[in-house]
Design a protein around this nucleic acid. Structure first.
Lengths: 130, 130
DNA sequence: ATATCAGTTTAGAATGATTCTAATGTATTG
DNA sequence: CAATACATTAGAATCATTCTAAACTGATAT
């Protein structure tokens, strides 16, 4: 991402110091899965003194603007994904780690959705053993 | 379930008053998705004075014995499923409701799992729009 | 039956992720 | 550069869940 400030403005987000730092980290071209906690740790490493409250606010602001996806992986914390394309995941419970599946997969044999309901999207989570 | 006490004993669970009540409710032949909260509400309706702590304990005990499945649906609470067969779900965020998909589905185009990892199971969650 | 003891239940405290509050700070607009 | 709308923050509050430790109960041996 060359011009983060411009990028934030384009998404109706004021380019504050904190948002610039966080956006620079998140949108550096490498897709990431973060939680408030892991992001906080990264920011601590780079000595950006950003409060936890701001980290939560920013993740949600980015999510509201569609810059992040929320993942429903487990009930212990919320995962945010910088890859907002439709895609699937491997999940290793042991490592508490997610890996993107970027190839196209097809699900066949799907039954009709209940009356008056339409399918929005299909998410496949492939659990790994070890 | 005719003999709940026997059923509990078979699963190395002492048939206490509370467990019998909860098992009777959960394993009445109709598959259910419950959270500690929804289960607590049901039990309140039937005036079973069972503490929340016991509800949590019991759900986990049943889970440990493989009588319930844990579902990772959202990050707000833990869902338990009385259907322990491998199956998939429709999920309506709006209704906060899960519907079992009991037909066989196939996922094709799956990439190889990462080195030294083996696929344990594949979970498909079909998000509904409305 | 009864005593014993391991396994259970429970109220209430503790925890941990997240959200809220309200005071202070800062980007934007005119 | 003043005004103001939006952001940040520390710390309190919230909420689901887990823990603690005391009281209780089902199973087993006597």
């Amino acid at each position: 991402m060359k011009d983060i400030k411009h990028f934030l403005r384009q998404n109706s987000l004021r380019p504050t110091k904190q948002r610039v730092i966080i956006a620079n980290y998140l949108f550096d071209g490498i897709n990431k899965h973060v939680t408030a906690e892991t992001l906080s740790n990264e920011l601590l490493k780079m000595k950006a003194g950003i409060s936890l409250a701001t980290i939560y606010n920013t993740l949600h602001d980015f999510y509201e603007k569609g810059l992040l996806k929320k993942l429903m992986i487990n009930s212990e914390r919320i995962y945010f994904d910088t890859n907002t394309e439709h895609h699937h995941h491997f999940y290793s419970k042991k490592d508490q780690k997610l890996i993107d599946i970027n190839v196209d997969m097809k699900v066949s044999g799907l039954p009709k959705p209940p009356k008056n309901k339409k399918i929005n999207k299909i998410e496949v989570l492939v659990h790994l053993d070890n």
